[in-house]
């Protein structure tokens, strides 16, 4: 993919903080291409450098080295004034909403329009449209403290969209919300992406967020991108330990001593009776250790862990059969008490 196509291109980004006279390297060397119109997830454990990375994108943190190119503009080369201009096209929402607590909902959404000196009448009209879009048409006169967390994040989203940005950066935007509210906010973001075509970057430590709305995901670990690609691909075939830790959390297989086989179903295979077919075709009974189905990006994925038969020949028949059916397999260690 060429540079022209990417909405955001990050090259050799490095960020070190000086903290108590000591250098702390938050980002070692980040290279990332975020396509136009995408919902791009960046996931990582606490302290991995997620917030630092997203804050470097709009230069809330100044990178120590490297380039941040948004829509063809290298953000690190801009003067203060040019940077402020550029920031109008990069909206941002935060974990703790960061609303003006002494201003009404309407005034909050008006804020970016006051900055751009939009004529009053037009600004007011746009504000009402945005509040309708986020489902808060009746709350214009309320103060943030009178709203729930989910409603406050909706106001923040409306505010971030006011200046018609091309990009929306979300730093743990749902981490302070309960699961139901999280789902509603994620659906709203997905809608905004579809309706307005805005490129959305989502920073999170929650797998559910990635699964629900992201098309592509990058895994950040100790200041580097460990792995990136379409969400479904990384789910079916995580290569790095960092990806496995995130995409296969707390599965019984990770701690056992018995050899087992994990089958990953993607696309059509999920709807087919692969296991019963396998038992018939290979003539060997197998026991199932665990199974589940998950929504990932635009697809549905399933995984089932089965015991591998002692008989070497039967085991290879099973592997051949599964390969024929287009099922991805992976050998894992399972603990014995998880079946029978």
């Amino acid at each position: 993919m060429g540079m022209q196509q990417s909405m955001i291109a990050i090259h050799r980004l490095k960020k070190t903080y000086i903290s108590h006279g000591q250098e702390v390297t938050a980002l070692q060397e980040i290279n990332l291409e975020i396509p136009r119109g995408d919902i791009f997830g960046i996931i990582g454990m606490s302290g991995a450098g997620k917030s630092t990375l997203i804050r470097c994108m709009n230069l809330l943190e100044r990178p120590t080295e490297g380039e941040i190119i948004i829509d063809g503009q290298d953000m690190t080369q801009l003067s203060d004034k040019e940077l402020r201009q550029m920031r109008l096209s990069v909206g941002m929402i935060f974990q703790r909403f960061n609303l003006l607590m002494q201003s009404t909902v309407e005034k909050n959404v008006l804020f970016p329009l006051e900055i751009t000196r939009t004529p009053k009448k037009e600004a007011k009209k746009r504000t009402m449209e945005l509040l309708e879009l986020v489902g808060l048409g009746d709350k214009a006169g309320a103060y943030p403290a009178q709203l729930s967390g989910g409603q406050m994040q909706r106001v923040a989203i409306a505010r971030a969209l006011a200046a018609n940005p091309k990009v929306l950066l979300c730093d743990e935007a749902t981490s302070a919300l309960d699961p139901m509210t999280t789902t509603a906010i994620l659906d709203l973001l997905k809608n905004i992406n579809k309706q307005l075509g805005i490129t959305i970057v989502v920073i999170t430590h929650e797998m559910n967020v990635i699964r629900r709305i992201c098309n592509q995901v990058a895994i950040i670990d100790q200041g580097v991108i460990a792995e990136q690609g379409p969400v479904g691909d990384i789910f079916t075939n995580p290569k790095t330990d960092a990806a496995k830790r995130l995409f296969r959390p707390n599965k019984p297989e990770t701690s056992g001593s018995k050899k087992a086989l994990r089958l990953i179903f993607a696309g059509q295979t999920i709807y087919e009776p692969v296991i019963s077919g396998m038992i018939q075709a290979c003539g060997v009974p197998v026991s199932i250790i665990s199974a589940d189905i998950e929504q990932m990006g635009d697809g549905i994925y399933g995984q089932t862990t089965i015991e591998i038969p002692e008989d070497k020949e039967a085991a290879s028949r099973i592997l051949d059969y599964l390969a024929e059916q287009g099922v991805t397999t992976e050998e894992v260690m399972a603990s014995c008490q998880n079946h029978k």
């Binding site: 109008l88 909206g91 935060f94 703790r96 900055i115 971030a160 950066l169």
Partner: peptide, 15 residues
Amino acid sequence: IDHGVIEAAQSMGAS
């Protein structure tokens, strides 16, 4: 004042 509010304003291009 919560520093986050000031950052939000900066992120919106406020001088």
